[in-house]
């Protein structure tokens, strides 16, 4: 398989990576300043992952919406489906950062947590 050029999105270094999938299924990575780059590039070639961040509506006039995220990475191709689901929610309880509002969102293994403070 040919080389793929990637930009690592894990940290502000933003390393320019060159990744190549080998015959045995392993991934060869160059250009990374740290091991996180290897994991990122491997995931990108095998099964890209992202953290969903967005907002959910609330019932409180002082917070029409509140910031939310998945507490871990989820498959990239599910991000739009999560966004659509989150846009159907309406919170009726005031929350603080870290409060779980949906467990195992869409069965993807990640919880949806609030990241801003309404209290």
């Amino acid at each position: 398989m040919s080389e793929v050029k990637l930009t690592c999105i894990v940290c502000p270094n933003g390393c320019e990576l060159v990744a190549e999938k080998c015959g045995d299924g392993s991934v060869k990575v160059a250009g990374n300043l740290c091991p996180k780059g290897v994991k990122f590039a491997t995931d990108e070639l095998v099964r890209p992952l992202r953290t969903f961040t967005g907002t959910a509506a609330t019932a409180f006039p002082d917070f029409p919406v509140i910031a939310v995220k998945t507490d871990r990475e989820v498959p990239k191709e599910e991000i739009l489906r999560i966004a659509e689901y989150v846009n159907s929610l309406c919170l009726t309880k005031r929350c603080s950062p870290g409060d779980v509002i949906v467990k195992d969102v869409l069965g993807l293994g990640a919880d949806l947590v609030v990241t801003a403070d309404m209290n």
Partner: peptide
């Protein structure tokens, strides 16, 4: 850099 974790803006402010 500061906390060694990826936070959202509101979490950082919090």
């Amino acid at each position: 850099i500061r906390f060694g974790e990826k936070l959202t803006g509101p979490e950082y402010a919090y």
